[in-house]
Design a protein around this nucleic acid. Structure first.
Lengths: 213, 213
DNA sequence: TTAAAAAAAGGGGAAAACCCCCTTTATTAA
DNA sequence: TTAATAAAGGGGGTTTTCCCCTTTTTTTAA
């Protein structure tokens, strides 16, 4: 009988089962069950024998996502440790998940040894952070201004139009503005968002969910 | 010693290793190694002892994606059977992958038993199709809109660099080419991919998994 | 070995993007 | 009502991107 129990919450069944197979190969860990989303997990947790030591939580899931679910777990099951497991590497998502109560954040790009270490450390110390995540946490303390970037409605509208093949002149027509005003918006946003050109702005917009493909 | 060998091509390392762990738990299958993209796979296959019976191939990967890789495998290693494994469920991607030579197409949402069945059937009969994929194949017989867009290695490399704040001049330096050659690549790709400008190219690249944010 | 195809490169010029500085107009708060 | 702030806009000039046409070099296949 293994020492510690794990539950996996991941909407792709095959990945869920594959990760379960991997975790079951670790010496001290046993997967109790898998769930497809946060809602299913909350239903399962009502039965006390279903309470695990650790939950491996995907972030992007339908119905009830990882961030929301983690917040609920923190409030109602404070003894359960949540480790996030995601392809999402942008700072905003990581910060949100950690603020919601996750004790660690692993990318699906890490080696399996890192997953095993994360499980062991979380049991032993209550958390596990990779260097990347530690850096992001540190930066988020000193870059308190960066979470305060406020984009105005018209700025957002402009950004969305830049994520298209339209010239600035065409965007100006679309927004009923002068091309010189568009120049002004561009200059302001390049400074505000610390980008060098339109490509930088488009990448920023997609990365931060301002524009969805 | 198990009967059949499998190789996994998947850019997220942990998923790669988790799927390998799962496949190794199947009675008749053994994972030889994993690769992060098609390019790495092609390098590995040059050693004859690295030739597997089956390749489990992700579709969206940087550098050389699943569709291109599968096409190359079909031409140069016709005995190897490729099964696609992806979150992508749109008809276009499925058709492209099957036309490229994949012997099956599984979603990451299937149960692990379906993966095992697919492996067994592919060894026994040479292919395995779920009902969904069979329906898509039948429907595609009446839609002969086959798009034959082939991207060359250097083109892909160029595309990845355009998804950055570098000027074309800087990209030319990075690729050890003349700026005029970059102009040539740009013109060719704009026509090939039916885009109007660099923004269009960047959006295409992100949408089609050529560039990952 | 030679011809064809692919890759690399070149010239020229117009349009678009970028950057710097500044003013005017409209809205909001005191 | 007036002053401050926000939004819109202007001039001028440089750099970069785009487009069109062509040639040279390298690689591949016959």
């Amino acid at each position: 009988m293994k020492a510690h129990t794990v539950v996996i919450v991941e909407d792709h069944i095959l990945l869920s089962q594959a990760i379960a197979s991997l975790v079951n190969s670790f010496e001290d860990f046993n997967v109790l069950y898998t769930c497809k989303n946060g809602q299913e997990l909350l239903t399962k947790l009502k039965t006390p024998s279903n309470i695990p030591d650790i939950i491996l939580m995907d972030v992007n899931m339908p119905i009830l996502n990882g961030i929301e679910t983690t917040g609920i777990i923190k409030n109602e099951y404070p003894k359960i440790k949540v480790i996030a497991l995601s392809v999402e590497e942008n700072d905003t998502t990581i910060i949100k998940m950690l603020k919601a109560g996750a004790k660690g954040y692993l990318l699906k790009d890490v080696e399996k040894d890192v997953l095993e270490l994360a499980l062991i450390e979380t049991i032993k110390h209550g958390y596990y952070h990779t260097k990347d995540v530690s850096n992001i946490l540190i930066n988020s303390l000193s870059d308190d201004y960066s979470s305060k970037i406020q984009l105005k409605d018209r700025e957002i509208e402009f950004i969305i139009h830049t994520c298209s093949e339209m010239t600035y002149k065409e965007i100006a027509e679309k927004m009923f503005l002068s091309p010189k005003t568009i120049d002004g918006y561009r200059d302001t946003l390049f400074q505000k968002l610390n980008v060098k050109n339109r490509i930088g702005l488009v990448l920023y917009a997609i990365k931060n969910g301002i524009y969805k493909l």
